[in-house]
Amino acid sequence: MENAQSMVLGDVEIFRVVEWQGTLMPGPELLPGTTDRTWRENADWLAPEHWEPGTGLVVGAIQTWVLRSGGRTILVDTGVGNGRERPSRALFHRRQGDFLDRLTRAGVHPHEVDVVVNTHVHGDHVGWNTHDVDGEWTPTFPHAQYLIPAADDAYYGPAGGYAGGRRPDDRLLYEDSIAPIHRAGLAVRWDDSYRIDDNLILESAPGHTPGSSVLHLTSGADRAIFVGDLVHSPMQLLDPSRSSCLCVDPRQAAATRRRVLERAADQRQLVIPAHFAGPGAVEIRRAGTDFRLGEWGRAAHRPAR
């Protein structure tokens, strides 16, 4: 996969920088209620970019979407980061990668970033909020506002007992990736909705986490929606009732997913999930009570500057 690919919607340039891409977990494990047969029956369009037939593992990516809008540089999610203690997730634990070099090669320098959007507070969406400077977690993007959903900030932070204290990772990720942003005075907590500029507005979309959010892009005649982890696999686009094993509230996540996807289909929004490998965006159309896939966003991609 190329380090960065870009497209233009209205007045907004969009490209992504990939931190990691590969296999994740078996399909039925990711989407409870599905079976190996379910995935194999859809292999003709899932493989090889979203599912690996030989192993039955889902294929995904950890990536940051970069938006140039209104003269500003905006990052949507910041991946895993380096050197994190994540004992519950082997893929994230003490990872060392070249994400910042990739970001720089794509033309994005940390001190030039104006806004960081954390769609929700999970370890693969907030990791590069900070980096290690002489043993201290320090904001990676020192001149940026970090937009953090207030509900997630409360739930994963000390006020919520670090998500109830069920996993050590939740305390660790808050302390190394969120708390330093607050101490630096760069955090902006928001509820319900938050307008970034004339083209971009955040909207609460709870279920995956209490504060999960989506980002709407409206510029000229173009529409897109960055749905974060509302969708992990294209299988969920066809049947929104399927919530992932990673959702805090699967029932609420399913209801939110259907609401968001219905609007995306009606308004012809390009759907841009956080973790799709291959083409990172897709159009959807109504198909009775569910949906069908339209055009993938591959044709609109071009090399980034």
Results as ranks from 00 to 15, higher is better:
residue 35 T to L: 04
residue 227 V to P: 00
residue 117 V to K: 03
residue 214 V to R: 01
residue 135 G to K: 00
residue 46 L to V: 04
residue 114 D to M: 10
residue 36 D to M: 10
residue 78 T to W: 01
residue 47 A to R: 01
residue 77 D to P: 01
residue 25 M to T: 01
residue 242 R to T: 04
residue 66 V to Q: 01
residue 60 G to C: 09
residue 171 R to M: 11
residue 267 Q to S: 14
residue 119 T to M: 11
residue 283 E to S: 13
residue 129 N to P: 04
residue 296 W to C: 11
residue 158 P to F: 10
residue 271 V to T: 05
residue 211 G to I: 02
residue 91 L to H: 15
residue 157 G to L: 02
residue 64 T to I: 15
residue 81 G to S: 08
residue 88 S to V: 14
residue 13 E to M: 12
residue 270 L to C: 03
residue 107 G to L: 14
residue 83 G to R: 06
residue 180 P to T: 08
residue 2 E to A: 13
residue 17 V to G: 07
residue 130 T to A: 01
residue 243 S to A: 05
residue 83 G to S: 07
residue 25 M to H: 09
residue 82 N to E: 06
residue 151 A to E: 02
residue 75 L to C: 11
residue 275 H to F: 11
residue 117 V to L: 05
residue 145 Q to Y: 11
residue 305 R to W: 15
residue 292 R to C: 06
residue 155 Y to I: 00
residue 147 L to C: 03
residue 157 G to N: 12
residue 270 L to V: 08
residue 240 P to W: 04
residue 75 L to Y: 03
residue 213 S to H: 02
residue 83 G to T: 06
residue 31 L to M: 04
residue 73 T to N: 14
residue 302 R to E: 04
residue 147 L to E: 01
residue 304 A to L: 03
residue 68 R to S: 12
residue 154 A to Y: 06
residue 203 E to Y: 05
residue 198 D to E: 10
residue 99 F to P: 09
residue 46 L to I: 05
residue 278 G to R: 02
residue 4 A to T: 13
residue 248 V to T: 14
residue 139 P to K: 00
residue 281 A to M: 05
residue 93 H to C: 14
residue 145 Q to I: 15
residue 193 S to F: 01
residue 148 I to N: 00
residue 20 W to I: 06
residue 139 P to H: 00
residue 217 L to D: 01
residue 140 T to N: 03
residue 86 R to C: 15
residue 301 H to Y: 15
residue 59 V to G: 00
residue 51 W to F: 08
residue 97 G to W: 08
